[in-house]
Computed example of a mutant assay.
Amino acid sequence: MLVFGEPYEASNGTVIVTVSRKGWGSRPERPVGIYSVSAENTAWIPAVDTSLHALIGVCTGFAAAVIGTIAVLRRPPWPEMTERVMTAIAEARIAESRQR
């Protein structure tokens, strides 16, 4: 439910009306924006909650760090390709080609 505040008239004749959203239960009201009404035009200026944007950024970074850590700590599903393994594969192919 939107709650409109008392109109405030600025020194230049612009009327400003605050708009907030009523919280559920014991939650406080949250600002939604303001209406700015002047002789020339009416404008809606939304209120931006930057703390929510920051929280989304932190959560995204944390998820990326967890996924990266899991990828490093867990062995990959493909076979291990060390120098010793690659040498053994090459020798097996050479031996197989000599038998033909």
Rank of each mutant, 00 (worst) to 15 (best):
C59Y: 10
E40P: 05
M86Y: 01
I34K: 05
M1E: 12
G61F: 11
R75E: 12
S97A: 15
A71I: 13
V66E: 02
W44L: 00
L73D: 05
A47V: 14
R21S: 02
V66L: 11
W24V: 09
V85F: 14
A88G: 08
V72Q: 13
Q99P: 09
K22F: 05
V58C: 05
A54N: 01
T18C: 03
E29L: 00
E91P: 01
G61P: 03
F62T: 14
E80W: 06
A95G: 10
I16S: 02
E96P: 02
V17F: 04
A92E: 12
Y8F: 15
V15E: 08
A90S: 12
R27S: 10
I89V: 12
P76G: 14
T14L: 05
V19I: 13
P76I: 07
P77C: 06
T82S: 12
T69R: 07
I70E: 00
R98Q: 11
Q99A: 15
A43D: 12
N41S: 12
S36R: 07
V32C: 00
V32G: 00
A64V: 15
S26M: 09
A64G: 13
S11G: 02
L73A: 13
I94T: 03
E91W: 08
V17H: 02
A64E: 09
N12G: 07
V72K: 09
R100L: 13
V66R: 04
P28H: 07
H53R: 10
A95F: 08
T82N: 15
V3K: 01
S97F: 15
T42P: 00
W44F: 12
P7M: 01
A95T: 02
A88T: 11
T42R: 06
I45W: 11
S51K: 05
G23N: 04
F62E: 08
S97L: 15
L52K: 08
R84G: 13
I56G: 05
N41M: 04
I70H: 02
N41V: 04
P77Y: 11
P77K: 05
V85S: 13
W24T: 04
